[in-house]
Design a protein around this nucleic acid. Structure first.
Length: 236
DNA sequence: TCATTAAATTTCT
DNA sequence: AGAAATTTAATGA
């Protein structure tokens, strides 16, 4: 440590949950991984830019999605502070070609593959944290896969709201605030369309599950949980 | 039930 | 003003 301890970058790295038990790694990351910032809509990664290393999100939100030739998108993950994306996905099998866009003001640090291995040797506990994070991603994907196969749009939307509120919700008096997502983006997360999302959301608003504003939602997690339960028992 | 198409309306820059 | 985001409505699979 030393001269860099006071920098914005060092402070953001220290705040990342992954590094909670690995303070030594913060200094190494600070030395090896340059930080870049981006604005909403900026492309952070695309299929041609694979193998570009491991990206640590320090601020903001990133959407990973597939894009088909007709322009339709399917969102695979929405990631926030402390999450990683990039090289990890390709450690095992060959992943689908994904794009990564900034959803708001994003800051991230990128570690080249070789440097990642060095860091993991120095701080094995970091590997465990990474494994936990990736396991969580798999669990979310499995949940979403089942919902896509078996549930209607309303149920899938409720599920998404519950997950977004838990992951990113800024809770104030029982209402979790989410302010970086459009209806269009929600549609790509649940396999639906912008118009259907708007209609379904206003239905849920009438049920008291959400309040909506332009690029802003307040999710009542208690009501969402109750509606999910009720729907689960109803046959379709 | 929900995607698609079309159009109107609201809100941001 | 112009762009972006949201809303409503009609239609058909």
């Amino acid at each position: 440590m030393g001269a860099r301890e006071g920098t914005e970058k060092f402070r953001l790295l220290s705040a990342m949950e992954i590094f909670a038990e690995a303070p030594e790694a913060v200094a190494t990351m600070d030395r090896l991984a340059p930080m870049v910032t981006a604005q909403r809509g900026d492309r952070l990664s695309d299929p041609s830019r694979r193998g570009g290393g491991l990206h640590f999100i320090k601020r903001g939100h990133v959407r990973l999605y597939a894009l088909d030739p007709t322009g339709h998108e399917a969102t695979v993950a929405v990631l926030g502070m402390g999450h990683v994306f990039g090289e990890v996905g390709s450690l095992a099998a060959s992943p689908p070609d994904l794009y990564a866009d900034a959803m708001d003001e994003v800051a991230l640090c990128t570690l080249r593959r070789g440097d990642l291995e060095e860091l993991l040797r120095q701080e094995p506990r970091l590997g465990l944290r990474l494994l936990e994070a990736l396991s969580g991603r798999i669990r979310d994907l499995e949940e979403q896969l089942v919902a896509l196969a078996l549930q209607d749009v309303r149920h899938r939307l409720l599920l998404l709201l519950a997950r977004l509120a838990a992951a990113f919700g800024d809770p104030a008096g029982g209402w979790a605030s989410i302010d970086f997502i459009t209806h269009q983006e929600i549609a790509t997360m649940i396999g639906s369309t912008r118009e259907t999302v708007t209609a379904t959301l206003s239905g849920l608003a009438r049920s008291g599950a959400v309040r909506t504003g332009r690029r802003q939602m307040w999710v009542n997690t208690a009501v969402v949980a109750r509606l999910l339960n009720a729907a689960g028992r109803e046959p379709r």
